[in-house]
Amino acid sequence: MARIEYQKTKEQNLPAVTPNSRNFENDHKGMAENKLDPTTWVDAYADYLFNYAIARINDAEIAKDLVQETFLAGLKSAKNYKGDAAERTWLIAILKRKVIDYYRKSNSKKGKAEVRINYGSQTDAEGDWLEEQVADPFSNFEHSDIENEELGLAIQSCIEKLPKKQAQVFTMKTIQGISTEDICNELNINPSNLWVMIHRARTALMGCLNQSWF
């Protein structure tokens, strides 16, 4: 008993050593690197998560809902966050569960999980050989899809590293395809300003993607 008491006091006297313990986060708020800040989530990670989701779900509306649910779930379990993963990795882990749950739910109705193959029921294919419908072994569509998803996420995380304003202008222009005039009106800048920002963003992106993609 006395020994336990001793250990307890010893622990109290020592400052928290592990970066994972909650004490540390409270004491050194400014120092802890992996700290949750839900107010910045949407601006910082929404596009990245959305790209991740849409590569797996293929439906923009559902993907958007899943991203929203991910943020809400993250907020709910923020107190369980131990700080040993980066914020984005943590959110991706939640999103992954959401995607799995989505497929589980949509397959739970009886019969939906079955794969049904129509053997040439189309009339114009009548008389054709089944062999012709076999997947082409030389096509590398699947492969390029995977590569493109990786590329998309790589670009997205490079955009995250840009200064906020540049990232905003670049996404609006390149990804959302909004016209120069509309962006200028919305952000209250003049066109030459916009082009300078685009230029800086593009140069930074080239540097960021340089190692692996050029």
């Binding site: 929404a46 596009d47 958007k64 493109n148 590329l151 959302q176």
Partner: peptide, 14 residues
């Protein structure tokens, strides 16, 4: 090249 990469990636944005 960067433009073609961006096109190839089929980037989606909210």
């Amino acid at each position: 090249q960067l433009t073609s990469l961006c096109n190839k990636a089929h980037l989606h944005g909210l």
